[in-house]
Write a protein that binds this DNA or RNA. Structure first.
Length: 479
DNA sequence: TTTTGAGTTGTTCGA
DNA sequence: GTCGAACAACTCAAA
């Protein structure tokens, strides 16, 4: 009787799971194990909602495994120690796991590989970061050529996706700990965990919503996005399943708009892999700007302004609505993420890393690669960055992408009586209008904490200075 | 090696 | 209200 270990990390699914398939084909029995890693759980980059979603996902996975005659083992501790002990205990051969790219995952897996045979297999992405490279062997650092190379690689079709196993045999007599409960019944904000839920969402979105995605995804007052991010984060749906669905939708689209929608959503799959590739090839982006020029930026980092941003009390309705949506649900609309990121970095001149950390501490889908890529893009410090002079105007963004103020009123109820015409700039209401709207600026709702025009000019100057300083430094070095 | 074309998501200003 | 230009060069990718 041979035994293999399936080490589950962010692949909480039975279908199209290459690590599980490899374990099953290599041995008679498989131990599915999740390791509660104190280094991750106590890292300061953890969100209650994300942890709750993980634990709920583990419960569903355990139930799914039990239907196949198996079960999930949960252990706690340093992964290398836990896995070495488990291997000894069940007399197992290799450990199979889905390769991950974050700097911590790399260190952790290297430590495990030193004490046990660890076989890392594909699955986090459709195309591994080592497979999408330039002719020279260097990684791409601009999205468009990356996406061209990505698309040129062979794609699996639906028939090639792996089915869930029909049965799974787990050795008897091994004990683990119970899947933790979240304190005080964490509300998962409309994201029930599990593979079945993820597959349903994917099928529903790929069957209808995706065709209007290009336009509707911009609208914060609509439900135009797939809301699959937490499921992709923990692999309740595989990257391949999502990409295959996108390609099928593209093929099935009958209108120009429909094709554009499917194409745009496919692009989002590729953006995800682009940022995974960037984090893999340039792990230092976790700690510093990708672009050297902006490592010298002089951030203001005013703690009071940061606090107002976190709490959704900036006086800019679209920013406050978004930040409150994040606190309450653990999720934020993608356009809203760009707006608040632009506001934090360009209006408040606060270090993007502060915002990155806050997002990781609250997002149910918080992913190191995508979050870092998004923040550095917004801050203009990243690989394929927005030009530094591209500064979102929170009023215009609100008027354009929440035209009726529905999103603002949902999350900032003190503004619910404000006329639509003024909902994104309530401070220009006359005192009389404020009384009538039941919203006095300065007491019911804050006045803007910064003046956008002034802040914008200050930021343009700061970025220009950072670039200038760099030029001077390198001139000096070259001499 | 050199050259050339191109680059997620925007805003402001002036005509 | 609408339109085009300016914003700022810079670096990447590929021929």
């Amino acid at each position: 009787m041979s035994t293999a270990i399936w080490w589950i990390r962010r692949d909480l699914r039975l279908a199209d799971n290459q690590a599980l398939a490899a374990a099953l084909s290599s041995a008679d029995e498989v131990v599915p194990v999740f390791v509660l890693d104190p280094a991750l759980l106590g890292s300061g980059y953890v969100a209650d909602k994300r942890l709750g979603f993980l634990f709920a996902g583990l419960r569903v996975l355990d139930a799914d495994l039990r239907r196949l005659g198996g079960r999930l083992l949960v252990r706690r501790g340093n992964p290398a120690a836990v896995l070495a002990a488990l291997r000894h205990e069940v007399d197992a051969g290799p450990i199979y796991a889905e390769a991950d790219v974050s700097p911590y995952a790399q260190r952790r897996d290297a430590a495990v590989a030193r004490v046990a045979p660890l076989s890392l297999v594909e699955g986090l992405t459709v195309h591994s970061p080592d497979a999408v490279l330039r002719e020279s062997g260097d990684p791409y650092v601009v999205y468009t050529p990356y996406s061209r190379a990505w698309r040129a690689l062979p794609m699996p079709d639906r028939a090639e996706l792996l089915s869930a196993p029909g049965a799974i045999s787990v050795p008897q007599g091994i004990s683990g700990e119970a899947i933790p409960e979240m304190p005080s019944q964490t509300d998962l904000g409309g994201f029930p965990a599990g593979e079945a839920e993820a597959q349903q969402r994917l099928a529903r979105f790929a069957g209808s919503g995706v065709y209007a995605y290009r336009e509707d995804r911009e609208r914060m007052d609509l439900d135009g996005t797939s809301r699959l991010s937490p499921y992709l984060r923990l692999g309740m749906v595989s990257a391949r399943q999502a990409a295959v669905a996108a390609l099928e939708a593209l093929g099935a689209a009958e209108t120009h708009a429909g094709r554009a929608g499917a194409q745009t959503w496919l692009d989002e799959r590729i953006w995800r892999e682009f940022y995974i590739s960037i984090l893999y090839h340039f792990p230092e982006v976790r700690h510093q700007s990708f672009r050297e020029a902006y490592r010298e930026l002089h951030w203001e980092n005013d703690p009071a302004l940061f606090c107002a941003w976190q709490e959704g009390k900036t006086g800019y309705p679209i920013v406050d609505a978004a930040m409150r949506q994040l606190s309450v649900t653990g999720w934020m609309h993608n356009r809203a993420r760009m707006i608040v990121a632009s506001f934090l970095t360009k209006d408040l001149l606060i270090d993007w890393r502060w915002g990155e950390r806050h997002f990781m501490q609250h997002l149910i889908d918080g992913d190191p690669a995508a979050n870092n890529g998004g923040w550095q893009w917004s801050a203009g410090t990243g690989t394929d960055a927005a030009p530094y002079f591209r500064i979102f105007n929170p009023v215009l963004q609100g008027e354009k992408y929440d035209p009726d103020g529905v999103y603002v009123r949902r999350w900032v109820p003190e503004l619910s009586g404000v006329a639509t015409r003024l909902i994104h700039k309530p401070w220009i209401m006359t005192p009389e209008a404020q009384r009538q709207a039941g919203c006095v600026i300065g007491s019911d709702y804050p006045a803007p904490i910064v003046d956008h025009t002034i802040a914008r000019n200050r930021t343009l100057a700061a970025y220009k200075r950072a670039k200038g300083r760099r030029a001077t430094d390198s001139d000096f070095r070259d001499r």
